[in-house]
Design a binder for these strands. Structure first.
Lengths: 219, 219
DNA sequence: CGGTACCGATCAATCGATCGATAGGGAATG
DNA sequence: CATTCCCTATCGATCGATTGATCGGTACCG
């Protein structure tokens, strides 16, 4: 038993039932330990959630900054941002879902801090869109609406993609890059942007599979 | 005090904090009544949520069926579906948000029933997309991914649009119809499809404005 | 008098969190 | 080798607070 295993159990249950609807005892039972033991690894229920969300947002921001660090056409920048975002959401769907949905569960200080991270992240998209518009590469009626629509579409991947499903992570990335280019009114970049992009990272908080947490494995 | 006012207060708080994180007493306080009074209007906390969500989903399904009832080009059908969906989400953002996010809070019977409504609704989109593909109007690599991306984009409107903001409902509808056509690889329909579409309906559960519920108005 | 609307008091259950106690392993000491 | 000591990991018991829900009672209206 370690922090990573606890985080995985927590993410499983929070993704399924939500933060407020999941009790400490339920988390402990699913992790196979007494509820009091959880307080040996984290200060509080909130703290567990916060550390999971912070890791996810920081990795998202870090890899996105890296993705637009190279100078390139706005269309390429957009494609790289979408590929990075979809990659993380597809490889870590439950963690991404919890990170996206449970911001409202945070107390003011953590809430402010994580909202700040999210704003920084979205600003990267806004900048690329602005650049694409000023250079005539994108064709949009309203930059803000387009950005929000794009982000909702990409975030949504965490709501429906499952690693053991029909499509590979790379296939979903390809598809969403194509759809994103269409949204922006930009020419399709058929994977040409992804050459030097590092593979998405599996977060420590992401459950490895749908283990029946709480069930004792025979043997 | 009536059912509509209670529903509006409930939707306000559920949209802000979530179903599980909002207590009965808190709902009563915000509505200006004792918590016991709420049980005079509804059988339980669950029942309030269920009735709100059912109304929203039924109106969504009803108006969508009406929208594709006329025989037309798949591109027109798509545009009409998106216009109807975005119209309802933009005019009733908090109700739509709660309906979308709190399905997991429902007990098995209600959960099954409302998931069924949602599946029926999404099947309308699947059918139009299939039709558009078979007639060569849409250009998609994967119909399922495109449908999910489209629905996430449209549902997302409820997460960011506010009626007192910069854009009118009609403007947001126009924008998202345009974006949806791009997603599908279909030619733009510049509002031509909306001629005989009835205006979106304001649901009884949608809060009228951001009244400071719980604050006593002087006078 | 009957019905609707509403409230204070209270129920058992559960909540997040804390406490002292215990068990085991490794390092230090004899 | 045996003993002591400390640290990590874990637990049962329990804290006060809050939860959703129910009850009997009250005020008012027709």
């Amino acid at each position: 038993m370690g922090i990573a295993e606890i985080q995985q159990v927590v993410v499983s249950l929070f993704a399924e039932k939500g933060y407020a609807a999941t009790g400490i005892r339920e988390l402990g039972r699913a992790a196979g330990v007494n509820s009091a033991t959880l307080y040996h690894y984290a200060g509080s229920k909130q703290e567990i959630l916060t550390s999971i969300m912070r890791s996810c947002l920081e990795e998202l921001l870090r890899s996105a900054i890296e993705a637009v660090g190279v100078s390139a056409d706005p269309g390429v920048h957009l494609a790289r941002l979408v590929r990075v975002h979809v990659g993380l959401c597809a490889l870590n769907p439950l963690t991404a879902k919890v990170t996206d949905q449970e911001i409202r569960a945070l107390r003011p200080d953590d809430h402010t801090a994580l909202i700040g991270l999210r704003d920084d992240y979205e600003a990267l998209f806004a900048r690329v869109i602005e650049h694409g518009m000023s250079t005539g590469v994108f064709q949009l009626t309203d930059q803000r609406v387009a950005r929000l629509a794009l982000l909702e579409m990409c975030n949504g991947v965490a709501n429906w993609y499952r690693p053991d499903g029909r499509l590979s992570v790379a296939e979903v990335q390809d598809q969403l890059v194509e759809l994103a280019c269409r949204l922006m009114g930009a020419p399709s970049r058929a994977g040409e942007e992804s050459a030097d992009l590092p593979a998405p990272i599996r977060l420590a908080s992401e459950p490895v599979a749908d283990h029946a947490y709480g069930a004792v494995v025979a043997g």
